[in-house]
Design a protein around this nucleic acid. Structure first.
Lengths: 254, 254
DNA sequence: ATTACGCTTGTGGTCTGACCAGAATGGTCC
DNA sequence: GGACCATTCTGGTCAGACCACAAGCGTAAT
């Protein structure tokens, strides 16, 4: 598994900007979201009709409808037959994947969202690593070791560790045996992929992270939830401090 | 907020079956999923072409594409231009909302999924109620009290408490101040809506649940995370035993 | 003035048929 | 055997049309 798309391997490994112009073809949804946000529409407000939106964005109704269907499944809008398309209370009703989609479109998380994601990730992963230590089986350990071996190779080759780091963490969650758990955490990793590539662009971080992963693996293999949780806690603290510094820097004016 | 669609209020309050014939118009996705499952396609396998699928399901290519776009955003399939539509490793890569969608389509959760959802819900809500007790503000308490008042009224009127119960629990999560947290938990409640209506169809459960909610509210208002967590833990235990009994009954042959 | 009816308009939902660029394929030629 | 090229098939997109239905509005009857 791990990464699926080829991708330009590693761009100029300096940084990934996370704010690329999104090609020139800017996916339709990527243009719809700013449009909605810019109009300051309140939840419950009606959007322009499909025909009007299609014309305004210079696409056919079919393409527009496809985009709206996606926004509907993410619970951002609601389509009422013979009536219109209505905005929903995104913060309360929107799905986690709505944020994932925005991230994939290059729209950065707000400061609040960053803090919330960091907090929730800690909650989930601390609990996951405990359960993993209690339940891991041979296949789980093999997955962990495979991810670790791949990481070691990648570090030696100077590759960006972002995806392999994710693979390890997801292997931990998978070791809980709870696949719904895995789905949720996977969304979080998709959410922060761009930023995590930036995180690991600093070559110093990869070896430290890897060492902490090794400690975690041992605790899991030994079946010691407390030690595993402590290891994960310390590991996350490092990542979280990165995020917090990022926010402070942005608060000071980038 | 709470419920959005009218719905027949409360069907014959005996049970909700969770396996309705899905009207006659059976949404296209609701037919696509069984088709994929029935063909025993492995992750990575290619689906028939859009044209072929459209013909097979008796719909236009546009309608078919809309459905595929939804499945793609839920990370169940992957569309590769000029190549085909490919199945993804749903259990590992699929989104939480994919399960929500299935539930809304009337497809019941597997036994494994039920156990996983129950476990994850406990993890999330225990942590949520702790944070709520630490951070709640006036607006949060007002939301909790509003939900409680509505519940009291509904119990008196003999209405099904499912949605108001959800409103209370979501108000607890909202009191954490973490909106991403709220999104995740909200998905869980959407996921089990039908079953929860069945749960509360037993009129005896509503008053007990309400009393437990009151205790939780007090602990949150008092700012006592431990007591709040204990209250939530006991409350969840009741719900979980319902689910486990359901599974056992199904295991014995419905 | 008030009510009841019916037409017009606008909406999402759907279908048809067509074109495009790019991959995948398979054959041909060197 | 390997490089090349034409054909086929794919998703992606478009334009134009029809449908059922809700809402609004005007008219007609009360």
């Amino acid at each position: 598994m791990q990464a699926k798309s080829p991708e330009p391997a590693i761009p100029p490994p300096g940084q990934d900007t996370a704010a690329q112009p999104l090609d020139e073809r800017t996916s339709l949804i990527g243009r719809l979201l700013p449009f909605i946000a810019h109009r300051r529409l309140e939840p419950g407000d009606r959007l322009p009709s499909e025909r009007e939106l299609a014309e305004r964005f210079g696409v056919s109704r079919g393409a527009l409808r496809e985009a709206i269907a996606v926004l509907e499944t993410l619970r951002m809008v609601e389509r009422r037959p013979n009536s219109g398309i209505y905005l929903r209370a995104v913060a309360k009703q929107g799905s986690l994947d709505a944020i994932v989609l925005q991230a994939e479109l290059g729209i950065p998380l707000t400061e609040t969202e960053v803090r919330e994601v960091v907090e929730l990730r800690r909650i989930l992963e601390l609990q996951a690593v405990r359960l993993a230590a209690e339940r891991r089986n041979e296949a789980d350990l093999a997955r962990l070791d495979h991810a670790l071996a791949e990481s070691e190779r990648a570090i030696g080759a100077g590759e960006n560790l972002a995806d392999l780091d994710a693979a390890f963490h997801l292997a931990v969650v998978e070791a809980t045996g709870n696949h719904v758990f895995l789905r949720v955490v996977n969304s979080f990793y998709l959410l922060s992929r761009a930023r995590r590539r930036h995180y690991f662009a600093d070559g110093q971080r990869a070896p430290l992270s890897h060492a902490q992963h090794l400690a975690m693996r041992d605790a899991i293999a030994a079946g010691e939830p407390d030690r595993a949780e402590a290891a994960m806690g310390g590991h996350l603290r490092g990542v979280e401090s990165y995020w917090m510094e990022l926010l402070e820097r942005k608060a000071r004016g980038d």
